[in-house]
């Protein structure tokens, strides 16, 4: 159908509302492309929360103290909660959780590629909390001002918990770094492996990021990939010094003129490989999610059948 005058005027009114910093709410009219972009972004974020439970969940049963076990268990539970809020936010745009899960396990929607790296040691739990949750906060703080209301509000709630996670990760690594020689080495090794993937979490450089212009105009995205990445580096370098751990980048140094840290080139080929399905754990992560969904089908079905029977019993009474 060719665009009509009323489509054009609605588009115009929509853009004006965005320009005036009004949030978009579920009942508001919105361009189809805004809706589909928003669905894709929220779904991808929700999937990341849920898939992200796997690398850390990998250490719950082996946590080296009961106190750390409790902290980790609560953290992984928080991530499930984040997934739930976000699927609920996506639902306001007319797509159900079941449908999105199906898109995830059939590879038609993505999740953050960081979770395709394995957690080999206990220190990885700390590195994820410190670096991955740290990068997530940097991203999500910017998203608290995103134009879609339910998403922005979900971000406010989630950011509060993410900053706990980041502090707990920092504290875990700090204990290791100041601990025995073996513990210090474990911490350094984890930081070596997670640093570059954490920088990749902000996505490709602005010059190669095709969606950015439209997303910026709609205020879905409010800060560019490279700017967020720089914020993260600037925030993290002093923390690494406080931890007495090195960041694995010989080119990392303070640039007085820019007022920022300079850092070395990112291996974007690795990023493309991992996003493209060739990371260490892509197949494993999806297989686990798929198995949970399939193995749980009979349970969900039983709950539905029971519910129906209860309802018919009450309406008959």
């Amino acid at each position: 159908m060719p665009p009509t005058n009323s489509d054009e005027s609605r588009n115009l009114a929509f853009q004006q509302a965005i320009d005036a910093d009004r949030t978009v709410e579920p009942r508001d009219w919105m361009p189809e492309r805004y809706r589909s972009t928003m669905i894709r972004q929220i779904a991808q974020h929700a999937h990341s929360e849920i898939i992200g439970m796997q690398p850390e969940g990998n250490w719950i049963t082996r946590a080296p103290s009961l106190r750390r076990k409790a902290i980790l268990l609560a953290k992984v539970q928080d991530e499930a909660g984040h997934g739930l809020y976000l699927y609920a936010a996506a639902e306001t745009l007319g797509v159900g959780r079941g449908e999105l899960t199906e898109l995830l396990i059939t590879g038609r929607q993505k999740y953050s590629s960081i979770f395709n790296y394995p957690t080999q040691t206990w220190a990885d739990v700390g590195a994820i909390g410190w670096l991955v949750d740290g990068a997530a906060i940097t991203n999500q703080l910017a998203l608290t001002k995103t134009s879609y209301g339910p998403y922005a509000r979900a971000m406010v709630r989630i950011c509060r918990e993410e900053s706990f996670h980041q502090r707990q990760g920092f504290e875990l690594l700090s204990e290791l770094s100041r601990g025995t020689v073996a513990q210090h080495e474990m911490a350094q090794d984890a930081v070596n492996r997670w640093w570059w993937p954490a920088l990749m979490m902000f996505g490709p450089p602005d010059t190669e990021s095709p969606n950015t212009a439209q997303s910026m105009a709609w205020k879905i995205k409010r800060v560019s990939n490279d700017e967020l990445r720089q914020r993260f580096v600037d925030m993290t370098v002093p923390q690494a010094q406080a931890l007495a751990l090195d960041l694995p980048d010989p080119q990392l140094r303070w640039n007085e003129a820019r007022g920022h840290y300079d850092f070395g080139p990112i291996d974007w080929e690795e990023f493309r490989q991992v996003v493209g399905g060739h990371g260490a754990c892509n197949a494993q992560r999806i297989a686990v999610r798929r198995a949970a969904d399939e193995d749980g089908a009979w349970v969900r079905e039983a709950a539905r059948a029971w519910e129906v029977r209860q309802n018919s019993r009450t309406s008959a009474a």
Partner: peptide
């Protein structure tokens, strides 16, 4: 109960099992 993490039949149950474990 913690062994259920990431294997629960639905997300609400993921949360509930973690609560029990905690």
């Amino acid at each position: 109960l913690a062994e259920w993490t990431t294997h629960a039949p639905e997300l609400e149950e993921e949360m509930a099992l973690a609560n029990l474990a905690l």
